[in-house]
Design a protein around this nucleic acid. Structure first.
Length: 595
RNA sequence: GGACCUGUAGCUUAAUUGGAUAGAGCAUCUGGCUACGGACCAGAAGGUUGGGGGUUCGAGUCCCUCCAGGUUCACCA
């Protein structure tokens, strides 16, 4: 419709003012709700052609369009805005097409599909997942679905930080203080057990350093020379050298962690097509660094550490190999990127990583480009904001980290409490009920996190997150469940859809209002793909649900005596439920048939 | 100190990328079921978009400058 209007307006300006107009000057937008009309032309940019006041120009163009374009039933001009009214018949015909279309995503397909890797989650194997990871996983997974329905070929990847000094810390602590504990012997989930030893390491290490400081050593030196830290460094060297004892311990503890992660991913409803391990990719990283050193892209320090000098790009010096030859984080990221490109020849490699690493990715891309990898252009850092608590940032030192597993079960508990209190599920079995509680609890959590602009820091307010009223996941699920309830009733009454006669129904403004909203779905999906923002879809779903609820409240569907209107409303409800279902599906949120 | 980011009602947030009178939810107050589901709907109140300047027909959005907060610049990841 917009394109048609643009063409007509272009024609109008040519005929009326004898000038040809550039496409960008014709600005069409949906009319704001407080004004009458459907589409609005901003006339200011056209004044240079009309050489007249905004009002007169609007009037002139408006009359021309109404005259030449039967779908336009009227217009009004307010200040510099020409509001065009589309005939109800056009909307009803539009809706007829929509109701009969096979896929809601047809209009989202891009012309040139790309191969896109989406990396998300990226856990360290020394701690369980927390609230920050939840935002990461939900964003990554939703992005995967959004890009996929737009026609791209998307590969979900995860890079597991399974090596490095931090892993050795848990290992050392377990060796020293673990007494052979295992997930089996303790009944503790594997990732939580390993996390426990990471915490123990930090505690003991801090104690040792404090003792040294008390003996008169300065703080930096004490931190460096505490025996636990020395052992850890030694273990990392052994690990890189392939020492069998260290290697086996590492394998065992990592396997515990993976079992734990898999459980959490499963609960969250996310998965991966390809998992990379840094223990595999860091070697390639080292090779690449050494090759680049030979090619004089990098330089070697007197202590034989290897660096990139990025000062000419406005960045700093960056260490790529330590003086003892071991790899750092950046080294393995270089290796991973090259590895991935060799395997997939991706057009884009999207890293879903927090905004605290903005600098890291700037450096990564710069170094790869200097090394001559032109495809580094396609590395995209999808930089999302931190999740904070009402009291401020989560701090492990203060024990304010919100654990992912705990949070998921708490949300489910709350869903159970609320549902049981409302008592609408009496005729369900316990298993069925639990499934509904799960959908509601997770729906609330996911929606709460995904509705905010990913780029912004967000506050996670526990009290607010378990609210199921207003702009929440359960509100949207509830709207869906109500529509389903209407269908069940319709079936009982033997009322069937008649898709042929939709445009004859004498429906009111509210129905048309919803049709207008439904029309925005594909463009919302496209916009969320282009802007990497699931939040746009979340807010759209809410708006649609709210609009539908008003309609549902004010009008009867099955009780309507005019059959053509009843039929229109029934199909309107069906399409609305489909759009809500699919929109929420893009966010990874499941919809219960009843709740 | 350098670089980057953020600031919208008491709180959580939106704003079609420069368009009209800044839109919602929570909390507060008031009202609404003989109905297809009240996890709903309607109404009230709440704003100098951190301050100031500039560009523009038009600025929450772009530029400058202050103020406040955050992130980062590790032989951590």
């Amino acid at each position: 419709m917009e394109n048609l209007l643009k063409a007509k307006i272009k024609q109008a300006v040519e005929v009326l003012y004898n000038c040809s107009v550039a496409e960008e000057l014709i600005q069409i937008q949906e009319t704001r709700k407080d004004f009458s009309g459907d589409f609005t032309l901003v006339v200011f940019p056209l004044l240079r052609f009309s050489k007249n006041t905004p009002e007169n120009t609007g009037e002139t163009i408006g009359s021309y369009i109404v005259d030449k374009f039967p779908a336009i039933s009227g217009f009004n001009v307010i200040k510099g805005f020409l509001n065009l009214e589309i005939s109800n018949l056009w909307w009803k015909e539009y809706f007829t097409d929509l109701a009969g279309s096979k896929s809601l995503f047809e209009k989202c397909r891009v012309e040139k599909p790309e191969t896109i890797l989406v990396e998300y989650s990226s856990p360290n194997t020394n701690k369980p997942l927390h609230l920050g990871h939840i935002r990461n996983n939900l964003l990554g997974y939703s992005l995967y679905r959004i890009l996929s329905v737009c026609g791209h070929s998307v590969i979900k990847t995860n890079i597991v930080n399974d090596r490095g000094i931090h892993i050795c810390k848990s290992m050392i602590a377990w060796q020293r203080f673990g007494n052979g504990e295992t997930p089996q012997s303790t009944g503790i989930k594997g990732d939580h057990l390993v996390g426990k030893y990471y915490v123990i390491f930090e505690r003991e290490y801090r104690l040792q350093a404090a003792v040294l400081v008390q003996q008169g050593m300065d703080v930096a030196k004490a931190k460096n020379e505490a025996p636990l830290m020395a052992e850890t460094r030694e273990m990392l060297l052994k690990w890189e050298a392939g020492d069998p004892e260290v290697y086996n311990l590492w394998k065992m503890m990592n396997s515990w962690v993976y079992a734990g992660f898999d459980e959490t991913y499963d609960k969250l409803g996310v998965d991966f097509d390809k998992i990379y391990y840094e223990s595999d990719t860091y070697k390639l990283g080292k090779e690449i660094v050494l090759t680049a050193l030979e090619n004089n892209v990098l330089y070697k320090n007197a202590d034989s550490s290897i660096w990139a000098d990025l000062t000419s790009d406005g960045l700093d010096q960056k260490l790529l190999l330590r003086s003892d030859g071991t790899a750092v984080y950046m080294t393995q990221d270089l290796g991973t990127a090259v590895d991935r490109y060799r395997e997939y020849k991706f057009d884009k490699n999207i890293y879903v990583v927090g905004n605290e690493q903005n600098y890291h990715f700037q450096v990564l891309r710069t170094i790869l480009k200097r090394m001559g990898y032109d495809w580094a252009e396609g590395l995209i850092h999808f930089s999302y904001g931190m999740v904070e608590l009402p009291e401020g940032r989560m701090k492990s030192r203060e024990g304010t980290i919100v654990d992912a597993d705990d949070l998921i079960s708490e949300m489910q508990e709350t869903a159970r409490d609320v549902s049981l209190e409302l008592g609408k599920l009496a005729d369900f079995s316990d298993v069925e009920k639990e499934e509904i509680f799960r959908k509601i609890g997770l729906g609330a959590l996911k929606y709460y996190i995904l509705k905010v602009d990913p780029r912004k820091n967000m506050t996670f307010n526990p009290a607010e997150s378990i609210d199921f009223n207003g702009n929440t996941g359960p509100f949207i699920q509830y709207t869906y469940a109500r529509i389903k309830s209407v269908f069940r009733k319709a079936e009982q009454l033997g009322i069937k859809e008649e898709i042929n006669s939709l445009s004859e129904a004498k429906v009111g403004v509210k129905e048309i209002e919803i049709v207008k909203l439904l029309r925005r779905f594909p463009e919302t999906v496209s916009a969320s793909a282009a802007g990497y923002s699931p939040a746009l879809i979340a807010n759209y779903c809410y708006e649609l649900a709210r609009e539908y609820n008003q309609f549902y409240h004010d009008f009867s569907i099955l009780g309507e005596t005019d059959q053509s209107i009843r039929n229109f409303r029934l199909i309107l409800s069906r399409v609305t439920s489909e759009v809500i279902y699919n929109g929420m599906w893009l966010l990874g949120i499941e919809m219960p048939e009843r709740m």
